[in-house]
């Protein structure tokens, strides 16, 4: 499993991550980011892509 943390002080809910890793990130009905704190190892590539496209660089994989 991989552990994911989003710094919600940085996050501006742009939602770029949603397109890269839709199983992990989503914008809710109020356009706020929601995410899973853990994901299968198979999601690593997608989560790394989400990290790369985050405008605020607010997404981290926790060791």
């Amino acid at each position: 499993m991989i552990k994911i943390n989003v710094d919600m002080n940085k996050c501006q809910h742009y939602g770029m991550c949603v397109f890269e890793a839709p199983k992990v990130f989503k914008l809710n009905d109020e356009d706020k980011l929601e995410y899973l704190a853990t994901a299968e190892d198979s999601e690593l590539g997608n989560v790394e892509a989400a990290i790369d496209v985050c405008p605020m660089q607010a997404i981290f994989i926790v060791d």
């Binding site: 809910h13 742009y14 939602g15 949603v18 397109f19 914008l27 356009d31």
Partner: peptide, 8 residues
């Protein structure tokens, strides 16, 4: 400005 889901 705002309305993220719509812009996305």
């Amino acid at each position: 400005i705002g309305l993220r889901s719509v812009v996305q």
